[in-house]
């Protein structure tokens, strides 16, 4: 019922929608690839750009600063990651941190190792970081870590203060200044060695987290979910808290990038395309038994780079304008 309260000023409406960010990126991209992108006209270029933003394909092969710039980009990247590598989950393989990083690098060339490690810490509860992880564990941990990194960092600071025995009242004030200069992973690890991993009182942490949410307007997991998680235990450590959040279905739905954990192997649309691709491969000799994950990636590349095969897409769009809208309504 947004349309009934048109009291939001235009500036605010534009800022909330992140539209200006996308417009400026679109223009920057256009200038960098003038010849390539204008052969079908500038209007068509913008149409393609915003269609791909809408379909969440725009983050593919883009730099890290871009994919983390807006909530929609973050969710889109997680979705792309899932779609590309779902087959790994299907085959039941477990991979290491470095292997997951390589996979992520194929999608985003400068995806930082620290982010992968943080996600791995959630899965492994900060223990034996070089262990192998199943795809689903890693996927949902990465989603939490990648979608709410600023919030989680602040929670970590609060948690460490609580562990060190500072009173919660004094905790909140200093964290507000320390978010920016937050010690990265290395500093965090040295802290760990000093601290015993007992965990803290959930109710105290819940209070602090609640206060923290006030400062993070909307970029935090739903409060009710966090309260629910914290009510279930009588002693909570940072990573056990994050693990519960990562597996929380409501949070997953709030982000809206992935299907529920029970159904995360199922993607009927992609399966259909894969089947088509597999029949194509089996027809052409010499290209048998390419790994299933690679097949999936190729498939996504074909689907997702709108500007490479702009001509082809244009034809498709004329026919199937309505259908794309339909599939996308669930994502937004």
């Amino acid at each position: 019922m947004n349309r009934f309260n048109s009291t939001v000023p235009d500036d605010e409406y534009l800022a909330d929608s992140n539209v200006l960010f996308y417009l400026s990126d679109a223009v920057t991209q256009l200038l960098e690839h003038k010849e390539e992108y204008t052969q079908f006209g500038v209007i068509r270029y913008f149409a393609e750009y915003f269609s791909s933003v809408k379909n969440s394909n725009h983050v593919l092969f883009r730099e890290y600063n871009y994919i983390r710039a807006t909530p929609h980009n973050r969710a889109s990247f997680i979705r792309v990651f899932w779609r590309c590598y779902r087959q790994i989950g299907k085959s039941g393989d477990s991979l290491s941190v470095l292997e997951y990083r390589s996979l992520l690098h194929l999608l985003c060339p400068d995806f930082p190792l620290a982010m992968v490690q943080s996600a791995a810490r959630i899965v492994l509860m900060d223990d034996a970081i070089d262990c192998l992880m199943s795809f689903s564990d890693f996927l949902y941990a990465l989603q939490l870590q990648f979608y709410y990194p600023e919030f989680l960092d602040s929670v970590l600071v609060i948690y460490q203060d609580l562990l060190a025995g500072k009173s919660p009242n004094t905790v909140i004030v200093p964290t507000s200044t320390s978010i920016e200069q937050l010690p990265s992973v290395a500093a965090e690890e040295t802290d760990k060695e000093k601290q015993p991993q007992d965990g803290v009182e959930p109710s105290t942490l819940a209070q602090c987290v609640d206060a923290l949410c006030d400062r993070f307007k909307r970029s935090h997991p739903p409060r009710s979910c966090m309260r629910e998680v914290l009510e279930q235990t009588n002693k909570v450590s940072y990573y056990s808290f994050l693990m519960s959040l990562a597996k929380h279905e409501t949070i997953n739905q709030t982000i809206g990038a992935l299907p529920s954990m029970a159904e995360f192997l199922i993607d009927p649309e992609m399966d259909q395309e894969l089947d088509k691709l597999i029949t194509q491969i089996s027809v052409s000799p010499g290209s048998n038994s390419s790994g299933s994950a690679v097949g999936g990636l190729k498939e996504v590349q074909r689907r997702a780079s709108p500007r490479r095969n702009i001509h082809h897409r244009r034809k498709m769009e004329v026919e199937s304008d309505g259908s794309t809208e339909e599939t996308d309504s669930s994502e937004n």
Binding site: S17, V19, Y22, G41, I43, R44, F46, A47, Y49, F50, S51, V53, K54, H72, E317, D321, E325, D328, N332
Partner: peptide, 13 residues
Amino acid sequence: PIGFLADHFCNLA
């Protein structure tokens, strides 16, 4: 808004 712009530009194109 994103969907709106996508439709808008597609329509113009």
